[in-house]
Design a protein around this nucleic acid. Structure first.
Lengths: 191, 191
DNA sequence: CCCAAGGTAGACAGACCTGTCTGGTAAAGT
DNA sequence: ACTTTACCAGACAGGTCTGTCTACCTTGGG
C-alpha cells in the first residue's frame, strides 16, 4: 500500500479558516451563543463545505479544544533547565496570558460550564487537558525530588485555575504576583 | 401615606416557584440551554405570569444570582470565634459544598462564562459577589492582624476559585485537603 | 354586589438554530 | 478526456427561542 502520510496530512484551507474563525468566536463569546451561520459567514465558507469537514457542531467544538491542547503542548519548556525552573516557566506563561487584552479565562473551564454532562465528548476533551496538565506538573515535581508530587501537583493545578478565573473576572495584575509567590514557595519548601 | 412595608414584601408563590425552578435548572444545566418554556412548565406557571414578575430572561438570571449572594451572606459564621477560625469556617463550608452530589462549580464563574460582556447586568452581579467575598476575607485578615490583608485575600480568593473548579471537573476529595492545608498555612504564617 | 389583582391557558410573531439538499464551478489526478 | 474532490451559493425543513397578546377564571376587599 502507499505510505499515505498520516502525520502531516495537509489540511484544506477552508477547514483551516473555519477552525480559526470558530476558535476566536467560541473563546471570545461562548459556544452556545455563536451559531454555525455566523462562523461560515465570517470564515467565507459554504455551509456544505463546513458540514463536509465537521459532521456536527459538537465535532467543531471538540476540534477547537483539541487544537488548544496541541498548541499548549508545543510550547516548549527551556531545555537545559531544572524541573523547578520548568514549573516556574509554565506558570510564567499562564500569568502572562491572563494579562493579555482579550483574555476571557480558561477555554476548558468555560466550555465545561456550557456542557453539564460529564460524559459528553466536549467534557472528555476537557478532562484530557486537565489530566495532561496535572500529569506534567506531577512529573516535573517528581523529577525535582519533591516528597509528595501528586498532592503538590493538585495544589499547583488549583493555583492555575484560580489565576485564570481571577484574570478573567478581577484585576489580572493583582492575582499574578500573589500566585507567583505561592508557587515559588510551594516548589521551594518540601512540605 | 400607609407604611407599605418595604423590607419583607410577601412575594407571590408563583414568583417563588419560578425562581426556585430556574435556580435549579440554571445551575444544573447552564443558562442559555434552559428556555423560558421549560421553566414555566416545570414551575407550573403561565407565561403571562412569568413575564409579569420578570420583564425579561436577563432579569430572571440576575434575580437567580442575587439570591445566591443573599443565601451565602446569611450563612452566619460562629459568633465567639477568632478571625482565623472564621476564615477556616468559611473554607470548610466551600470544601463541603464541592463534595456534595449535584455540585457543578461556582454559579458565578459559570454564569460569567456564558456572558462575555463585562458590562452586562449579569456580569455586574458576578462582580458584586466577588467584591463582597474578597472584602469579607480582607476584613477578617485585617482583624486577625495580618500584615498584608489585601494581598492575602487575593490569595485566598484564588484558592477558593481553584477549589470550586477542581470540585466540578476533577475529584473533589483530592483538592479539598490540599487547599485546606494551604489555607491554614496562609493564615498562620505572616508572610 | 362589584371589581380589581393575580392567575391560567395557549395562540402567535419573528427571529434564530442545526442540519440537509440541489446545483454549479474549478482544479487536479489518471 | 474523464472522473474525483473540494468548494461556493443558497433554498429549505423542522425545531426552539424570547416576548406579546387575547380570553377566561378565581378570590378577596369595599
Amino acid at each position: 500500500m502507499t505510505p499515505t502520510t498520516t502525520a502531516p496530512r495537509r489540511q484544506s484551507p477552508a477547514r483551516r479558516r473555519v477552525l480559526d474563525t470558530a476558535s476566536a468566536l467560541f473563546y471570545a463569546e461562548g459556544i452556545h451563543t455563536v451559531g454555525i451561520d455566523r462562523i461560515i459567514a465570517e470564515a467565507g465558507v459554504a455551509k456544505a463545505t463546513f458540514y463536509h469537514h465537521f459532521p456536527s457542531k459538537d465535532d467543531l467544538v471538540c476540534a477547537y479544544l483539541r487544537e488548544q491542547i496541541d498548541q499548549l503542548r508545543q510550547q516548549v519548556v527551556p531545555q537545559g533547565a531544572t524541573p523547578e525552573e520548568k514549573i516556574a516557566f509554565v506558570f510564567e506563561g499562564v500569568g502572562e496570558i491572563t494579562c493579555r487584552p482579550g483574555f476571557r479565562g480558561c477555554a476548558f473551564i468555560n466550555a465545561a460550564a456550557e456542557y453539564p454532562d460529564p460524559g459528553h465528548p466536549v467534557r472528555r476533551v476537557v478532562a484530557d487537558f486537565r489530566g495532561w496538565f496535572k500529569g506534567l506538573l506531577e512529573e516535573l515535581l517528581a523529577a525535582a525530588g519533591h516528597p509528595d508530587p501528586r498532592r503538590t501537583a493538585v495544589m499547583l493545578m488549583t493555583l492555575r485555575d484560580g489565576l485564570t478565573v481571577a484574570g478573567a473576572l478581577d484585576d489580572p495584575a493583582e492575582a499574578r504576583p500573589a500566585v507567583h509567590a505561592a508557587v515559588t514557595r510551594l516548589i521551594g519548601s518540601g512540605d
